[in-house]
Design a protein around this nucleic acid. Structure first.
Lengths: 199, 199
DNA sequence: TCGGAAAACGAACATATGTTCGTTTAGCAG
DNA sequence: CTGCTAAACGAACATATGTTCGTTTTCCGA
């Protein structure tokens, strides 16, 4: 059997990436085998190698694209927000939650399959993650300096906020009770004001 | 070669569990192979089966013991706190963070290796997790009813709080800059009051 | 139109991996 | 002391898995 009529490299590559995201998200990278991935795409295991170098490289590509997209979109959202610090902080939170609602598979994989990356690949991703965290840390520091925010430790606060905001990935279902805007609003309120009533 | 002088069933079983926690935490359950585990313990792969039924069962035992311990300790902490709602809420948060600092490997595994459990095993663990979440949801509902708390959605708020509080597992190092009590205090403040300054 | 690149396939390889089996030795109850 | 059980071992099995190879067929630029 040779090349199949109507086959198209770019389309097949996209199918592979989408199926890989599903499978890795459901079972984890180590538990996803390439025969299963190939079956999902509808090609033979050998054919996967027309579109990727190795299994490890496939994971790296998926995570790397996600991280660069996240960074670029975040900067765009910050630039689009008003100049006031609280507006930019709200923009950061809102964008983070929305992005994580829409691309929860990518986010989940990027967060929890870091250990499956080869050390050099992991270092690249950790660098990008560090850049992302730096955006929030800078906002918090600016807010504290301006007297708008009160946190005992900026770095820990940033990590805690990110953990909270990223948590939506683990339970969100598009068919759920709340709409996206509701979820965004709840998280902005929680991050800024906590659960206690303000009088 | 037969039984080794000084060998002891209970001690070996404990060594296996401890080594398994380390390896699963570092590499993930699917990526941990039993030859590596056996080498870490200092026995042969075949000998593992004197202390466990299957690899799957080992994971289930680890997660199950963690969840039942967490539930029992939480109830004890709540019972030991004062009767006022805010005292109990602070006790829940404080205990959660402390427990997660001290047993971050168990927590990480219980949260992120659920998908590696067989469906019947996973159902048991999900039930225990649901019980745990119910403790916090009940506290939040009581606080809202009493007018002490203000959250738009109790269930989402509980999930968000748990995600934030559990996040410490991903970055905490005992040798780090902050002591445990500092970290607990920061998280209680963040969960209750958020990052905004209160005047 | 025609030849090379692209994109698929079946088959196989080398290795990894969970598990079992038979055997052997140490500990301990009677 | 004796025999049963606990706890270890080496060896092997059956299967799974990432990857490569040679081949075949389609697409497309020259």
């Amino acid at each position: 059997m040779g090349r199949i009529a109507g086959s198209n490299g770019e389309r097949t590559a996209a199918l592979i990436r989408r199926a890989a995201l599903r499978l890795i998200h459901r079972q984890g990278f180590a538990a996803m085998n390439l025969r299963e991935l190939a079956a999902e795409v509808g090609i033979s295991p050998a054919s996967l190698y027309n579109h990727m170098r190795t299994k490890q490289n496939l994971l790296f590509d998926l995570v790397h694209e996600h991280m660069t997209t996240l960074l670029a979109e975040t900067d765009a959202a910050l630039a689009a927000a008003g100049p006031a610090l609280m507006d930019r902080l709200r923009a950061f939170i809102g964008h983070h939650v929305l992005y994580h609602l829409e691309r929860k598979r990518e986010v989940y994989i990027a967060n929890f399959e870091l250990r499956a990356l080869d050390p050099p690949n992991a270092a690249v991703i950790l660098g990008l993650r560090h850049d992302y965290e730096a955006r929030l840390i800078a906002l918090l520091e600016e807010g504290v300096a301006a007297g708008l925010l009160a946190v005992e430790d900026v770095r820990v606060a940033a990590y805690a906020m990110l953990a909270m905001l990223t948590g939506v990935c683990t339970w969100y279902r598009p068919s759920g009770r709340l709409g996206r805007d509701d979820i965004v609003a709840v998280h902005i309120a929680l991050a800024l004001d906590g659960v206690c009533r303000r009088d």
